[in-house]
Simulated scan of single mutants.
Amino acid sequence: MTEQKSTPTAPTLRPVRGAARCAIVALVLAGVTWVARAVWHIRLAVTGEPASGPPDQGGGVHRPLNALEDSYHLVASVGGGVTAVCAIVFLFWLDRVRDNAKALSGAAPRYSHPWLWLGWIVPVVNLWIPRGLVADVHRSVFPERRLPAVVNWWWGLWLAGLAGGVGLIYADDTDEVIARAYQGVLPLLAADLVIVAAAGAAALMVHMLTTAQQEHIAGQDY
């Protein structure tokens, strides 16, 4: 009998370049919307609080908004919508590169699939699981290489943007943020700057990890 040699089956890989481009565009747009918020924070601070006081008068009473305050509500709403879309597109990209990393390495991910979504919202573990998900994409394919510094920069800036309820997740409603801009704008501007930097670092990270994974795939002889 003739002995037949089995040929290794090529792993099933998902296309990621399109998802990466969409994620980068979404991150850039999110950064632009946060630059716009910073501009409106400055405009509110320079204009100063009206004689009638802050929009939220206390006791459930809100005075009518002036034109600048009304436009800030619009900017904040658009920014919130863009940020939400950006998060979805980013997770869509992460899901794809994570699946490819699993197929290429043959190893099960450290975190199961539900953590791709829950890892961002479950308290305490959201301080490290999202970074771990991204780090595993790189390490599963390039275990001998150091994690790119941009991953740590992105995660540090992300956490800084969340700190104190002045960044991505405001503890106050929009009218209360307007009042804070009138009373002391510097903390708001600092948070805006951190979030814009985090979006830029995330876009660079998406590009670097996608490129590295694609080069690894191109270099394999399946």
Rank of each mutant, 00 (worst) to 15 (best):
residue 34 W to A: 00
residue 72 Y to K: 01
residue 43 R to G: 06
residue 184 G to L: 06
residue 113 H to S: 10
residue 3 E to S: 14
residue 39 V to G: 04
residue 88 I to G: 07
residue 217 I to H: 12
residue 68 L to M: 13
residue 99 D to M: 06
residue 19 A to H: 05
residue 142 F to T: 09
residue 51 A to M: 11
residue 78 V to E: 02
residue 7 T to W: 10
residue 108 A to K: 14
residue 34 W to E: 03
residue 179 A to P: 07
residue 152 N to Y: 11
residue 140 S to T: 07
residue 25 V to G: 15
residue 185 V to H: 08
residue 80 G to H: 02
residue 89 V to A: 02
residue 116 L to H: 12
residue 8 P to I: 15
residue 73 H to G: 13
residue 113 H to Q: 09
residue 108 A to L: 08
residue 192 D to P: 05
residue 174 T to F: 05
residue 206 V to I: 15
residue 194 V to H: 03
residue 26 A to W: 01
residue 17 R to T: 15
residue 144 E to C: 04
residue 154 W to H: 02
residue 205 M to D: 00
residue 36 A to W: 04
residue 32 V to H: 03
residue 29 L to M: 09
residue 81 G to I: 14
residue 48 G to I: 04
residue 170 Y to H: 14
residue 135 A to Q: 12
residue 129 I to E: 03
residue 139 R to E: 12
residue 110 R to Q: 15
residue 154 W to S: 00
residue 180 R to L: 03
residue 136 D to R: 05
residue 94 L to W: 02
residue 110 R to P: 11
residue 114 P to M: 04
residue 61 V to L: 14
residue 37 R to P: 00
residue 142 F to S: 08
residue 146 R to A: 07
residue 31 G to M: 00
residue 9 T to C: 13
residue 18 G to Y: 07
residue 38 A to W: 02
residue 202 A to Y: 03
residue 206 V to N: 02
residue 127 L to H: 13
residue 164 G to T: 08
residue 182 Y to Q: 10
residue 95 D to W: 12
residue 105 S to L: 11
residue 118 L to G: 15
residue 214 Q to G: 15
residue 52 S to N: 08
residue 3 E to A: 15
residue 56 D to A: 14
residue 213 Q to H: 11
residue 94 L to Y: 02
residue 118 L to N: 11
residue 31 G to S: 01
residue 123 P to M: 08
residue 32 V to T: 14
residue 121 I to M: 07
residue 64 P to C: 01
residue 124 V to R: 07
residue 169 I to C: 04
residue 15 P to N: 00
residue 199 A to Q: 13
residue 95 D to M: 10
residue 140 S to I: 02
residue 30 A to G: 12
residue 191 A to Q: 05
residue 68 L to F: 13
residue 214 Q to M: 15
residue 48 G to N: 05
residue 71 S to T: 12
residue 68 L to T: 13
residue 29 L to W: 02
residue 69 E to K: 01
residue 34 W to L: 05
residue 199 A to I: 07
residue 137 V to W: 00
residue 1 M to T: 05
residue 58 G to Y: 06
residue 24 I to M: 09
residue 97 V to C: 11
residue 216 H to C: 11
residue 160 A to G: 09
residue 70 D to E: 13
residue 141 V to C: 01
residue 137 V to K: 00
residue 211 T to S: 13
residue 64 P to T: 00
residue 141 V to H: 00
residue 49 E to H: 06
residue 77 S to V: 10
residue 141 V to W: 00
